[in-house]
């Protein structure tokens, strides 16, 4: 008996099983990728001016920590994120606002009055009063915030994406 050009029964069953199996795997498998990844790909967008109070409250040449919180909803839970910034007033009008997040691995730095440095407690990264790296592992200076002064009130621009 010569081989028929048509599919035989066994070939047909194999083909149908493969196609149906692939389709069903795809129906669950492809959405599953989006299901697992989607929250990770979602970018939260923050673009706000945060009031830091009267400029005159901040002493000259003395880094002063200002803390504030912002609440965000992640998934099913409302969480409150804490932020800390160091306000350094150079003169009556010139100031610098530095983030207290260490540029190495995101621990929070503290101002050490004696050594006149910001010191990170995690890996001993040190920054001078302007946020430049003095020593330790941090790869770049402390981040600075854009600021504005309106009627003697200080605002910083919080931007996250």
């Amino acid at each position: 008996m010569s081989k028929s050009p048509n599919l035989n029964r066994r070939e047909f069953v194999t083909l149908v099983s493969t196609v149906v199996g692939s389709v069903m795997t795809a129906i669950v498998g492809i959405p599953a990728i989006g299901y697992i990844l989607s929250p990770s790909l979602r970018t939260k967008k923050t673009d706000a001016w945060i009031p830091l109070g009267k400029l005159e409250n901040y002493p000259v040449n003395q880094p002063t920590l200002f803390t504030f919180t912002r609440s965000i909803t992640t998934g099913w839970e409302k969480t409150v994120n804490s932020y800390g910034v160091f306000v350094v007033r150079k003169s009556d009008t010139e100031i610098e606002v530095l983030s207290n997040v260490c540029t190495h691995l995101s621990c929070r730095v503290n101002w050490n009055e004696e050594k006149q440095e910001y010191i990170c407690p995690c890996h001993d990264g040190r920054f001078n009063i302007d946020g430049k790296v003095d020593s330790g592992p941090p790869p770049r200076p402390l981040d600075q915030y854009e600021y504005k002064i309106e009627n003697g009130d200080l605002f910083i621009h919080l931007k996250e994406s």
Binding site: V28, P31, G34, Y35, L37, S38, P39, G75, W76, E77
Partner: peptide
């Protein structure tokens, strides 16, 4: 189980999140 939380304060909300917040959550 990636998103569901078995506690009374979050179980219902976590399922709402699966249905409305996650891509293809409604399908799964």
């Amino acid at each position: 189980t990636v998103y569901y939380v078995p506690t009374p304060d979050h179980a219902y909300d976590s399922i709402q999140y699966i249905m409305n917040g996650v891509t293809f959550g409604w399908l799964i």
